Each structure stands twice: as structure tokens, then as C-alpha cells.
Amino acid sequence: MQFWDISRKVGAATTQAIVVLLVINVMLGTFSAYQQSLELYRNEKTRSEDERKKAAEEIAARCNVILDPTETFRGCVAREIEAYEKQANTDNDLKAQQDMAFWAQAVFWLTSLGTLISAVGLAFVWQSLKQTRQAILTDREVGHAQVRAYVAIDAQTPVVRPDVVPEHTFKIRNTGQSPAYSVAYISGFQILPHPLPSTTGHIGGLAPGQDMPRAALAAGEFIIGEAFGIRELTKEDFRDLQNGTKALYWFARVFYDDVFKQRHETSFCGRLHFEPAPGYEKNAEPRPWIVSMMVDQKRSYSD
């Protein structure tokens, strides 16, 4: 199982667990608030009854003990009840303000919790969407890689002779599962110093204004490519090649588009290696030479 699959499942399970815990928490909180409210109502009712009895006893005692000669008992009771109601209203206002502050704080924390849970949920959703998009891209790349065209160069050692312009034919083959379009190539020979400087890049390229013929290449099919040197190889050239002071390179670069309109390149570069045939004396003339081709890994690749 791939990492993005595991991550997506873990994210979904975590989100579900958060939702379940949130629902349970809300239910428990609601039930607890209901029980607290019921208990508060009972305590408040008992307290009110006790205070009412106590207030009645205090009013009766005051009016019996400190009754003003000019005031009737009824007036005294009315005055004490009015004072009691003012004090009770003040206490109720204070209690209401405390309750409002409590519920405002509760609403704030509940809102903050909801915002946090929403943010966590959105983060998991975003991560899941990101992983889904990555999975789609990966599947698309895998699908492209499975059905796209792959153009290869069948490289064989060229045959070269003194006083002859080097030339070579080779196959450009589509080994993929779909056609290759706009297939074009450049190929040729070059004599260069040996070894090559480390800063040397591609060998061979298009001259300014030069165009390449283009063709389509079906899956499993091939076309014949041709490579030509720019001049005849002289005896002095062969002497330098045999001494190892210079090297003859054969190069081929193929450019093509796949069915998904993506551009690709296959490049091959080989150095012809000259060594004397065994069994002959060193100064024997004419002495046969064995020519092999060494692949230049730096300049041979395919994308």
C-alpha cells in the first residue's frame, strides 16, 4: 500500500473520530448543563423560600421593636418590603450580570473549539485532495510511460578506410507501444583531440538555418539513418587515430514527439578505438588494425 493511501485513510479515520468525539462531547455537555440547571433551579427555589421566610420574620421583628410612634404597623411593613425588594433587585441584577459573563465566556470557548475543529477538518480535507491530485498525476505518468513511444538507435561499429569519406547506416527503431511523431535526426563523424576536454558538450549539431526532415514512426517499426563525414580520412588522420592523439567520433541524435505531445531525445555517441591485430610484428607493414567502438556514456542517453 502506497504512503498516500495510508495517509488518506488515517486522515479520514481521524476526521471521523473527531466528529464522533465532538458529538459525544456536545451530548454530555448538554446533559450536564441540563442537570446543573435543574439543580440550580431547585437550589434557587429553596433559597428564595428560605429568604422569604427570613425576610418576613425580620420585617415583623423590626416593626414590632423599632416602630416609629408616628408610623403605623402597616406603613412599617410596606417600607421594609420596599427596601427588601430594592436589595433583592440589586442582587438579581448582579446575578444576571454574572450569568451573562459566564455564558458569554462559554459561547466564546465553544466558538473557538468549533473553529479549531473546522480548521483541523479543512486541513485533513486539503491534505486528502492534495494526495488525490498527486495520485492522479502519478497514475497519469505511469500510464504515459506504459504507452508512449520509445525511440532507440541500433548502434554498430562503422567501417572506415583511408582516403574515403566515412559513412555509416543505422536503424532508428520505435520500441514503444504507440507512434512517434515529428521524428528527426542528425548524425555524422568528427575527428577531435583525445581525450576530450571536460567542458565539451554534445558532439555535432545543426548548422544555422539547417532543417531536419521529419517523419512518423509506428510502434515496432524502424527507419534507416545515414551518417557522413565532412571530408576524406587521410593517412595522417589514421596515424593520429592509431597513435591515440586524436579520436574519431560517430554521433547520432534523434528528436521525436509522443502521442501526448511531449518532446523527447535519444542520443548516441561512440568513439572508434584502433588497436593492432595480435600476431603481427610491431613494425610489419602493412599491419592490420582492429577497430572497435567505445560508447561515450556522457553523451549517450534517452529521456
Rank of each mutant, 00 (worst) to 15 (best):
H194Y: 11
Q98S: 11
P166F: 01
E167I: 03
T169G: 00
R79H: 08
D91G: 02
V120M: 13
F108S: 06
N174C: 08
Y185E: 05
S112T: 13
Q190S: 12
A88C: 05
W103Y: 11
G188T: 04
N64I: 14
V120G: 04
W126V: 15
Y185P: 03
M100F: 13
P162E: 08
E80M: 13
E80Q: 14
L129T: 10
H194C: 11
R173A: 02
F102P: 02
K86H: 08
T72G: 07
S118D: 12
P162V: 10
D163K: 07
I81R: 04
L67Q: 12
L113E: 00
P179S: 09
Y185D: 04
L110F: 11
V77N: 10
V164P: 01
A180Y: 00
V77Y: 10
A88M: 09
T111M: 14
I66N: 13
K86S: 07
D93L: 11
I172T: 00
L129V: 13
R140D: 03
R74W: 10
T90M: 09
Q134I: 09
R173Y: 02
A119N: 04
Q131K: 12
Q97H: 11
R133I: 13
T115K: 15
S128Y: 12
Q190F: 05
P193G: 02
W109Q: 10
D93I: 09
P179N: 07
K130W: 14
K86Y: 10
Y181G: 03
K171M: 05
A83Y: 06
S118Q: 13
N174K: 04
E167G: 01
A104W: 11
A149V: 01
M100C: 08
N174G: 06
T111E: 10
C63W: 05
